[in-house]
Deep mutational scan, measured.
Amino acid sequence: SPEEIKAKALDLLNKKLHRANKFGQDQADIDSLQRQINRVEKFGVDLNSKLAEELGLV
């Protein structure tokens, strides 16, 4: 269901964000992850996106 997909995506992105902060990645990478999280919260996951591929939806 779209809600489950959204939850999985947010979980994955939050893990990536945590790792980025923990290991001191570029601020641009961290900002990009934050924008992705905001986009998923607002609009859900686009099944044509790279994120959908990472989640194994495509």
Rank of each mutant, 00 (worst) to 15 (best):
L51T: 03
P2L: 12
S1W: 11
D31N: 09
Q34H: 11
I5G: 03
L33T: 03
V40W: 03
D46M: 05
Q36N: 05
Q25G: 14
V45K: 00
L17R: 02
G44V: 00
E3Y: 05
K15G: 08
K50F: 10
Q27A: 12
Q27R: 07
D29R: 14
V40I: 11
N14I: 13
L12Y: 15
D11K: 05
R39P: 01
F43D: 09
N48A: 10
S49E: 05
K6L: 08
L47M: 13
D11H: 06
N14P: 00
K8M: 12
L55R: 00
A28F: 09
D46H: 05
L12P: 02
P2M: 14
L13E: 00
N14Q: 10
S1T: 14
L47K: 04
L10A: 01
K22C: 15
S32G: 09
L12K: 04
G56Y: 04
D29P: 03
R35V: 09
E54C: 09
E4C: 14
G44H: 00
E53V: 14
L55G: 01
A52T: 02
A28I: 09
V40C: 02
V58G: 10
K6M: 07
A9Y: 05
K22S: 11
I37Q: 02
L13V: 00
I37K: 04
K50W: 12
G56C: 06
D31P: 03
K15M: 08
V58A: 11
I37D: 01
K42D: 06
L17C: 03
A52G: 04
A7I: 12
D31V: 08
V45T: 02
D11I: 05
F43R: 04
I37G: 00
A20G: 03
G44N: 01
G56R: 06
A7H: 10
S49V: 02
R19M: 14
N21G: 08
I37E: 00
F43K: 04
L47S: 06
Q27Y: 09
P2I: 10
L33Y: 03
I5H: 08
E41P: 01
E4A: 12
L57E: 03
N14S: 09
L10D: 00
A7G: 07
F43W: 10
A9W: 04
L10E: 02
I30T: 04
L33F: 03
D11F: 04
K6Q: 06
L51K: 01
D26E: 09
Q27T: 09
Q27H: 08
S32M: 15
N38E: 15
K8P: 01
Q25M: 13
S49N: 04
N38T: 13
V45F: 04
E41M: 08
L57G: 03
I30M: 05
E53R: 11
E53M: 13
D46F: 03
A28Q: 11
L13M: 03
A28P: 05
D29F: 15
L10K: 03
A7C: 11
V58E: 08
V58R: 10
L10G: 01
L10Y: 00
L13H: 00
L55P: 00
S1K: 08
N38H: 09
D11Y: 06
D11L: 06
R35Q: 12
L51S: 01
Q36T: 09
R39M: 15
P2K: 11
E41V: 08
Q34V: 15
N48H: 12
D11P: 00
N21F: 06
E41W: 02
L55S: 01
L55Y: 02
E53N: 08
L12A: 07
G44K: 00
L10Q: 02
N38W: 05
E3A: 12
E4G: 09
P2N: 12
L51W: 06
D31I: 12
L33M: 03
E54G: 03
L33E: 00
L57S: 03
K42Q: 14
L47Y: 08
I5W: 13
E54Q: 07
A52Y: 09
P2A: 13
A52I: 05
D29N: 10
S1I: 08
K50G: 09
A9T: 02
I30W: 03
K50I: 09
V45W: 01
F43Q: 07
K16M: 13
Q34K: 14
E54T: 06
K6V: 09
D26C: 13
E41R: 09
R35G: 09
I5N: 08
K8S: 06
I30P: 01
N14W: 13
L10W: 00
A20N: 03
I37R: 02
K8E: 06
S49D: 07
N48D: 10
K50P: 15
V40G: 01
K16L: 13
L10R: 03
I37H: 01
D31S: 06
F43L: 08
Q25D: 12
G24I: 04
K6D: 03
I30K: 05
F23L: 15
K8H: 07
G44W: 01
V58L: 10
S1G: 12
N14H: 15
K22V: 14
A20I: 07
V40P: 00
K16A: 10
R19D: 15
D26M: 07
Q36L: 15
L57N: 03
R39K: 13
S49I: 02
E53A: 12
I5F: 07
I5S: 05
K42M: 12
L33C: 02
S1Y: 11
F43Y: 13
N38Q: 14
V58I: 12
D46T: 05
E41F: 03
V45E: 02
L17G: 00
K16E: 06
S49R: 01
D26A: 11
K42N: 11
L12W: 11
L57V: 07
D31W: 01
K22G: 07
Q25I: 10
L51N: 01
I30R: 05
E41A: 06
D31T: 08
K15V: 07
I5Q: 07
E4F: 11
D29M: 15
K8C: 13
E41D: 06
L10M: 05
H18W: 07
K50Q: 13
L47E: 07
G44C: 02
L47W: 09
L51P: 01
K42S: 09
V58H: 10
I5A: 08
D46S: 08
Q34T: 11
D46N: 07
A7N: 12
P2Q: 12
D29K: 14
N21I: 15
V58N: 11
